[in-house]
Amino acid sequence: MKKIVITGLTVFMVFLLAVPAFAAAGSSLGTKAVMSPQFQHIWQMSAGLGIDSSGKAHCTGSADVASTTYKANLTVSLQKNTNGSWSTVKMWTGSAVGPGLVVQGDYYVTGGTYRACSTVQVYSSAGTLIETESLYSAEKTY
């Protein structure tokens, strides 16, 4: 019985800690930052940015929270560096109760250096904000 429980817990943990893949063959897509697990109520979060040869930026972010009763708000921002200062060009948002939240979007950029920022806000089942964290992708120049 003990062996079955340990095996079941191992399989369960493997599925919970799986990180979504982000890749594209033959393009500049695929730069992604992943944090897992570093926070109190966030099990995993990621921020990814790819820019193809036509200037189409693909931003993606994901978050997994520690309880199925927690609500997560995820904002993914495309940011541009202008003279050393980062400004938001485009933003996408989503929310869900429990783990498994993914937000993504596309936007055509002009020349410059860009990054994606994922910001996760976690709310308890009572509606109280209990954690906010941000994560940035690697920078991409177009």
Results as ranks from 00 to 15, higher is better:
Ala18Asn: 09
Gly26Gln: 13
Ser36Asn: 11
Met1Asn: 03
Ser134Asp: 04
Gly112Lys: 08
Gln121Tyr: 03
Thr110Trp: 01
Glu131Gly: 10
Gly50Asn: 10
Phe39Arg: 11
Val14Ser: 09
Ala126Gly: 09
Ser125Gly: 14
Thr110Val: 09
Phe22Leu: 12
Leu135Cys: 06
Ile130Gln: 09
Ser53Ala: 14
Trp92Ala: 09
Val97Asp: 01
Thr141Ala: 05
Thr82Glu: 06
Ser53Trp: 13
Thr68Asp: 08
Cys59Gly: 11
Gly100Cys: 05
Val103Thr: 09
Val103Met: 01
Tyr142Trp: 09
Val5Gly: 00
Ala63Gly: 07
Gly48Cys: 06
Gly48Thr: 04
Gly55Met: 13
Val5Lys: 05
Glu139Asn: 02
Ala96Thr: 02
Ser27Met: 12
Val76Ile: 13
Phe15Asn: 04
Thr110Asn: 14
Leu17Trp: 02
Lys32Tyr: 10
Leu9Thr: 01
Val5Gln: 02
Tyr123Lys: 14
Gln38Lys: 13
Lys80Ile: 15
Lys3His: 05
Gln38Trp: 11
Phe12Ser: 06
Gly105Ile: 04
Tyr142Leu: 06
Lys3Gln: 11
Ser124Val: 15
Gln38Ala: 12
Thr93Pro: 00
Glu131Asn: 11
Ala126Arg: 01
Val76Phe: 08
Ser54Val: 15
Val102Asn: 03
His41Val: 06
Pro99Gly: 05
Val120Lys: 01
Leu135Val: 10
Lys3Pro: 00
Phe12Lys: 00
Pro20Asp: 14
Ala116Pro: 01
Ser53Asn: 15
Glu139His: 01
Gly100Trp: 00
Gln104Ile: 04
Thr68Ile: 15
Asp52Gly: 10
Val103Asn: 00
Ala63Arg: 00
Trp92Cys: 08
Asp64Lys: 15
Glu139Trp: 02
Trp43Lys: 14
Trp92Val: 12
Gly105Lys: 03
Asp52Cys: 11
Thr31Gly: 06
Met45Trp: 02
Thr88Gln: 07
Ala25Glu: 11
